[in-house]
């Protein structure tokens, strides 16, 4: 971008205050909490690396999804991932991987993806539940803030005209074309819809499915977990939504990188985003 401004006439730029302090704090708190929740969650999954539908894991039906290890005839371990009965060799990453010291790790997810790295279910649960509290409290604070400060209405709710231009926005995204000038002060419509579905669909769902795994919370209103299909279904939903959130993070970071990485980083840290006024 610097190169482009040298060839053309230097375009005047200014810093626009884009993100309020409270949003910035809650954004990074959420990022840290979700990262730790995801990685400690993968660790907890390693304690029983299979997913089922219904209430029981031993209903007579095979698991929907499973990561396991088996030995070859020559004794070599093979990492196996089974999805709806179809088997994939995932040696090196899933089922069989290596610890940093080169030793063979036969847990489902590799040590580099889990917190803690070395196997300790009790420690992983402590990490998970502590940061679950931080994540939930932060989330509640965010929802109240965005309602009362009108952040939700002003910055996140798409307008009718924006929704009508959703096709154009998709084409822009595919072409990696990003808004500039006044347009860059607002979130675009796809961005708004992505944020809204994460904040109001995926995050509440991952919390609810997490609660559904607690035997004590199950007893509060006996049978409420049937709404999610039962405890094992809830565990499966929790796992899938966690990966959807990971997918969101990947796309989010990708978009940040290709649309002016340092500008975005500055605006999420100091609040100020550089706007180029169009000639």
């Amino acid at each position: 971008m610097a190169a482009a401004s040298i060839t053309s006439a230097p375009s005047p730029t200014y810093l626009y205050y884009r993100h309020a302090l409270s949003v910035r704090i809650m954004h990074w708190t959420n990022f840290i909490a979700l990262t730790i929740l995801f990685m400690s969650g993968l660790h907890i999954f390693n304690a029983h690396s299979a997913l089922y539908w219904g209430d029981s894991s031993y209903s007579g039906r095979p698991p929907l999804f499973e990561i396991t290890a088996r030995q070859r005839a020559n004794g070599e371990p093979v990492g196996v991932t089974r999805v709806f009965g179809r088997e994939f060799d995932t040696t090196g990453v899933l089922g069989v991987s290596k610890y940093a010291n080169g030793e063979i790790n036969q847990h489902a997810f590799p040590a580099w993806a889990t917190i803690p790295g070395g196997y300790s279910l009790s420690m992983a649960r402590d990490w998970h539940f502590f940061f679950a509290w931080i994540f939930v409290l932060n989330g509640v604070a965010y929802v109240f803030y965005s309602l009362f400060s009108r952040h939700l209405k002003r910055d996140l709710a798409p307008t009718g005209s924006e929704l009508r231009q959703i096709g154009t926005s998709i084409v822009d995204h595919v072409k990696f074309k990003h808004p500039s000038g006044e347009e860059a002060k607002r979130y675009n419509v796809l961005q708004k819809l992505a944020y809204l579905s994460v904040i109001f669909v995926l995050l509440p769902l991952v919390i609810l499915a997490g609660w559904a795994m607690s035997p004590w919370l199950n007893s509060l209103i006996p049978g409420w977990t049937d709404w999610l299909g039962g405890r094992q279904s809830a565990r499966t939903i929790h796992f899938i939504v966690a990966w959807l959130l990971f997918l969101f993070l990947a796309v989010h970071v990708f978009e940040v990188i290709i649309s002016g990485f340092w500008n975005h980083m500055r605006s999420m840290i100091t609040g100020r985003y550089r706007i180029k006024t169009e000639a």
């Binding site: 402590d126 539940f129 502590f130 509290w133 006996p222």
Partner: peptide, 24 residues
């Protein structure tokens, strides 16, 4: 520090269920 979640969850659970809640 991490383990404080245990007291937190247990207290909230007890607060929510003043009556003896029954497992499904």
């Amino acid at each position: 520090v991490l383990r404080t979640h245990e007291t937190l969850s247990r207290s909230v659970h007890q607060l929510l269920g003043s009556r003896p809640s029954m497992a499904q």
